[in-house]
Design a protein around this nucleic acid. Sequence first.
DNA 1: GAGCACTGC
Length: 819
Amino acid sequence: MSKEESNELKAQSAGKESVELTKGKKRKRAGPQTGWSEKKGAGKLTKFDTAGKETTSTTPKEKTRIDGIKSKSDAEPPIERPEKLNKPKKPQVAPQATNSKFKPAQQARPKNKQTEGPRYSQQAQNVPPHLLKKRDELLPVRKSLPIWPQADVIKAALKTNNILVLTGETGSGKSTQLPQFLIDEPWCTKCIAITQPRKVAAISLARRVADEMGSFMGSQSPAAKVGYSVRFDNATGPSTKVKFLTEGMLLQEMLRNPAMSQYSAVVVDEVHERSVNVDLILGFLRNLVTGQESASARQHPLKVIVMSATADVGSLVKFFEDSQPSPTTEKPPGNPIDESTSLKQAEVASQAVASRISTCFVEGRQYPVKTVYLPQPTQDWVESALKIIFQLHYKEPMPGDILVFLTGQDTIEGLEKLINDYAEGMDKDVPKLLALPLFAALPQHAQQRIFEPAPFRTRKVILATNIAETSVTVPGVRFVIDCGKSKIKQFRNRLGLESLLVKPISKSAAIQRKGRAGREAPGQCYRLYTEDGYNTMDERTIPEILRCDLSQAILTMKARGVDDVLNFPFLDRPPREALEKALLQLLHLQALTETGSISETGLKISKFPLTPTLGRVLVEAAKPERDCLLDVIDIISALSVENVFLNLVTEERKEEAEEARRELYRREGDHLTLLVTVQRYAAEQTDRKIWCDKHFVSHRAMQTVMNVRKQLQQQCMQQKLLSKDDTQSELAPSEARSQAILACMLRGFISNTARMMPDGSYKTLMGNQTVAIHPSSVLFGRKVEAIVFNEFVFTGKAWARGVSVVQLDWVTEVVKAIM
DNA sequence: GAGCACTGC
């Protein structure tokens, strides 16, 4: 085993997160061998550092070209911006800054400030020595990060401007260092929020920053300065100054506290991944900083830092700039706008003028990766991948694992089998090959295998979906094989149907995949397409907001007081048709009134971590005439996890499972079946794991179900839909109650209903689409009058999943009522 | 008698 390998292993076993998280890097850059990688979380940076030290000869000349802050206006660098344009300043020393650290430092900036230790060192009075020791050990690592020398420039920029767009390639250290740069700034009297697209990233970053600051984490101590907040896990305390949180969490907070008065700064990280949530957050923040929304009585204006790995700074800057007076056309005070507006608006305007935008670029660290294209395009990339795997295996010295990007479980399992077959015929003196599948549906313990060391003289071949593009970092990879395709979910407005299609990836995704080969050493990337093929790819992956059902996003906007959603500041504006479709759906759900404003019901729905349809079902179940809320919570909890029932492979096991689950199945359909399953699981007092094994139910899924259930019950109590006196029934529901439950489902899923045609097929009531009951349903093959279903998916054929029997006259009744 | 990329509240 090489030094690097053993370091990697040490890091893996020492780090608490065995899955290393990275940022998605979608970058517009077709240039020569560059890629991006970033170490995050405890263990990873250490590993990088160790590896770097021990392999300095092989490390490429540190690419530390760093562009400093660039002001939008060359003639007027941000640092020299006249103070008068800013909001009236509070005294330089913040109220709680009784500590000496605040005093002179902000005024006079010594030239070589970055060589000093962190200023918060004086604060560490009640901190145990081991934390301080760790902090001091980590300081040199921090100082070696490309972003470190930029600290003063960044601080100066944010002193003058309220918005900073920071593009940092991976490995620059931006996610960990930026909050530490800002924490002692005079304007930073409250907390700094840093958003992440994934939970694991939020948690591991928080751990890392706590270590670097010599602080406790979250709830460990009331003195903890660093914390995180993700669903089901809130680790923040009264002194938390740096808080990592998932995008969804920040969005929830934005609904509860629209002015964001608990924060001095919001850092939006990984913006290039462009989740729907990020798009909403950016829109809300833009409204907030430009004073279009209620201008709050803040001490200091909210600082917004947008961080991205992409090069398209331009669109981000333009996004924030558009609403602001441009620097060149700035009007002197007393201009017509100011005169005709109220005093408050004038204040807002002056704040807007001050909210100019700084930009900053920090280069990352990455080893070079050689790209090899196919000379001719191919249809059969499984075959091509197989050939290249064995070529590499014979030709390239060990160590060096191979990562193959494929589209899904089926192709992965197919290639896995082929590799194993061919590997059997290899010469005895050739090292062995170990094929390891990696996709999200794989059980956790099977996923863990990619982190385990390969046996002696064995090369790992990891066959992965795009889970390995951003969410999981596979150690030891020197070779990447990229099929150039991925499955993409697309929402079709006209049909209200989503489909999962195999499509070519974008250039930025291809670059991202390639970068996976250059994280630990120089690498190679084999693209199973031609160079022309690459050139015809889209530059960027289409943002999620342009290809998903918008009803939840729009309800969130309405709940935050955005009345005119058609004119919401979208980074990418969805087509009008998609917006209108979503508005109509919300109207059908009675989440909106006829005039388009949010209703009482809509407000309730928006507070639940559910789609509007499921939220509507929940609200319906709380009505006295329905009176089945606890049952419906159980069902919805089960619907919000992937698969409660294990997917069996062999015929034999399938039959075994059918038999074992028979006592759970209900003839009314999948919803009542799920209810019984949750009830039985919850009632199991001895060993739930054994119960799951016995019934071929996923224990992991059921644990999540129980978490969701608890959360929904709590939220229902907060919203007064449920009282403490309501008791959970442990008995399967009566006939009458079953009917009530299905009536509630129907209220939310009225557009997902179908009736049987004379030929035995099903057609939807709204849209007249043919659908078939999915084979995973307990109703598969049954012929009933009418059905209600949760999902309408197209995979070769239109399928209804999550299906229950309903009476046709109920359906027509509800349809009539809302149309 | 079919199949399901990936997040997240």
